[in-house]
Design a protein around this nucleic acid. Sequence first.
DNA 1: TGATGTGAACCCATTCACAGCC
DNA 2: GGCTGTGAATGGGTTCACATCA
Lengths: 229, 229
Amino acid sequence: MSDSPRRRIPEAALGRLPIYLRILVDLGTENVAQVSSEQLAELAAVNAAKVRKDLSYLGTYGTRGVGYEVQFLMYQIQRELGLNQSWPIVIVGAGNLGQALANFSGIAERGFHIVGVVDKDESKIGTVVGGVRVKHVDELASIVQSKAVNIGIIATPAQHAQEAADALVRAGVGSIMNFAPTVLAVPRGVNVRKVDLALELQILSYYEQTRNNGLRAVPTGEHSDSVSA
Amino acid sequence: MSDSPRRRIPEAALGRLPIYLRILVDLGTENVAQVSSEQLAELAAVNAAKVRKDLSYLGTYGTRGVGYEVQFLMYQIQRELGLNQSWPIVIVGAGNLGQALANFSGIAERGFHIVGVVDKDESKIGTVVGGVRVKHVDELASIVQSKAVNIGIIATPAQHAQEAADALVRAGVGSIMNFAPTVLAVPRGVNVRKVDLALELQILSYYEQTRNNGLRAVPTGEHSDSVSA
DNA sequence: TGATGTGAACCCATTCACAGCC
DNA sequence: GGCTGTGAATGGGTTCACATCA
């Protein structure tokens, strides 16, 4: 554990690294040089022990009695996440959502860039979305191969999500981000992350309902519990 | 309504209920009447014990030796999540993302409907998005009150997300869905769920990077040795 | 002195395995 | 016999508290 740590990072900690990273980037642009786990915790709305434990998975990058050097830690997180390289991405589905994603600046700003958008609908093909020309889904494999794409985004309607996933896997994509509500069946070894808008709203609906029933955990009860993330 | 169990559902289980629900809806439209925990687990890509435990938080709605009645269970989940009522929603931010969300059919299909879209940008105000006319953010409070809105969506750029949250909270909204990458500071009791596209991509980036290094956890064998970066 | 890094304790979530009921 | 419902066991994640070191 001297110079290259590189054990596998626990899922839960991994999910927080991008949050810390974003905060560090902000601090960096404000020319803050050092940050303590206490401060980072405050900004990320978690507790300080968690911050330290999470960062310890990366290696020993802090200075006892002082804190963490912002630029250095930023770089280490980026490197660990693989953000020091550029990731070409392909989007399947050029509807409302696919277009919004292709035009979403947050993607390009972080080393991800859209190299292809495909759709089945002939009327979409040939239009330009997010700077690339929409192609037929049949060309997916050739795009993935010629551009060395590893990550695909599914932005199709639910009923076509599984075939989109199949096509991506066949084309050789290793990770899929799924915006359709479908639970995808993929071969072992393929990573899927699902972002489900309606699911999140339904959870909020539950929170609101229980809050209105007075069942929401309020600090003044014996069921002390907080829900917000 | 007094045959209710109504303990608080654990966060992790709560997050899976919408998934089961969607599957049940699909089964229902295929006229499937009964389903076992085994089948549900298969379709949701989880294990059967988890399905049973999750459903047990709702009450005792299965039949031993038989399974669950699709329509009945569907109704119970909907009721538990509060989906038997209609939830008015307001969107802050009428840019790319806000427009896509306002037009997203998945929202309206599930009892959520957009009753207001607000923005700061004068050029957006007055345009029609998702069937409603965009208003100035100053009108947020009056919209929230007149339409009894509980849930707000933040679809602004990062630098305006916190003020959007403040405005929503001041207006009386109890739950916020945040599409900006910002970690929002909100008063205790306000629920926030964050959907961060770039965050998800960064996690996929990590998976792909470790996969390429051969460090991806593969069930066969234990390769946890040092790989020079 | 002051903040990191980390074993140990704690707590929640998952899984097992079987009693209970149809 | 078959499948649910659930205590008990396990495992992972969080928090505590303190040894450690600049």
